[in-house]
């Protein structure tokens, strides 16, 4: 047993399970590839790489650019946490996610949609833009409220000072 483990790298059960799954994949895969074998193979491998090689670089670069643009003005020595980037990141993420799922309708790619369903194909782009606008507006409102809450002690002190001065007069 330990000899097998040394040569293979895991228990015989591991090998058995993997081979079972490959047998199933082969049985279904032969049927999957029966028509346009190349097309299906490209779609399958493409689907495996879609996130890692397309989406990830795209959102990573966007996120880095946002962080760079929003970097604290105090220079690299500043201790301010970089959390403010999230006021941009959250609405952008949700908006991009909705586009990622519903792009064929939003970008009017389905020419036969109205003929088939008797529903308008022209509403989706406008609706997505309105949702995006609402998301950014809500985020801006949160940022505003947070900023006011953060400066409240200072404002209260200033008000008290003014009131004090008035009373002294």
């Amino acid at each position: 047993m330990s000899h097998f483990r040394r040569r293979y790298g895991a228990s015989p059960l591991h090998l058995l399970l993997v081979l079972c799954s490959f047998a199933l994949a082969l049985y279904a895969g032969v049927r999957l590839l029966k028509g346009d074998a190349w097309g299906v193979a490209i779609w399958f491998v493409g689907a495996a790489l879609l996130h890692d090689l397309v989406l990830l670089p795209l959102y990573s670069v966007t996120d880095r650019v946002m962080q760079y643009v929003l970097r604290p003005s105090g220079g690299p020595s500043t201790r301010t946490p970089l959390m403010s980037v999230n006021y941009l990141r959250v609405p952008l993420f949700v908006s991009a996610l909705l586009l990622l799922v519903w792009w064929p309708l939003i970008l009017r790619q389905v020419s036969h949609f109205t003929v088939a369903t008797a529903l308008s194909a022209d509403v989706f782009l406008g609706r997505w833009l309105v949702i995006t606008a609402i998301l950014f507006a809500a985020s801006a409102l949160c940022l505003l409220l947070r900023a006011r809450a953060a400066t409240r002690p200072a404002r209260r002190a200033a008000r008290a000072q003014r009131a004090g001065r008035k009373a002294a007069k």
Partner: peptide
């Protein structure tokens, strides 16, 4: 065809 057989290929690997 794609969604049904693709599901079986996927589920084998998923169980593993």
């Amino acid at each position: 065809v794609l969604h049904y057989y693709g599901a079986w290929v996927f589920m084998g690997a998923f169980v593993v």
